[in-house]
Nucleic acid binder design. Sequence first.
DNA 1: GTAGTGATTTTCT
DNA 2: GAAAATCACTACA
Length: 197
Amino acid sequence: MPYDKTMNRSFFDNETLEVARRLIGYPLIYEGPDGIVSGIISETEAYTQEDPACHTYNGRQTKRNTVMFGPPGHLYIYFIYGMYHCLNIVTEREGRGCAVLIRAVQPLEGIDIMKKNRPKIKKHSELANGPGKLVLAMGIPSSLNEQDLFAKKSLIYLGAVPYKATEINVATRVGIAKGSEFPWRFIATRFNNEEVV
DNA sequence: GTAGTGATTTTCT
DNA sequence: GAAAATCACTACA
């Protein structure tokens, strides 16, 4: 699958807040065992090393957060609440522990696969409208942690051309105790006049 | 429609 | 031992 020159590693070698905002609208594509599954990124959150809620806040490099200190464009998938995984993309230069959390996507391709992965969900809009849900729906395995999005044989990558969001809302982050006052959450409600929520 | 709570395990104190 | 970048279920309006 070819990459457009507008989407390359330098996209992520940038200020985390800027990357989080610009990621809205890009398709996230995964070539799973049952076929292609993809969705338009509709919600993101920024996490920087200075952020008390970030896993790299104290600057200490541990086994879990090593990839966040590495070069941009790699995945950071971590296990949370004993049941769910969250998908992040590492940003900024090597040595800076920053990433963008992908909080939601709008299903695009492989919707039948997503329904199979989440049999209780009937509405398209609820298949992947949460960080744990999108990993489940798309069937992304935790073994893809530390995967390079731009590796030639990567099974997961971003589409070249973003869908156009008619508006992007900014909000405070949820589910965290510290740093919740920062408006570092970006949400798109419509793409090309199609309703997301 | 909203509010409250249990599930379940890795990571750090 | 406690908290955690969550979700789905139940009760109630």
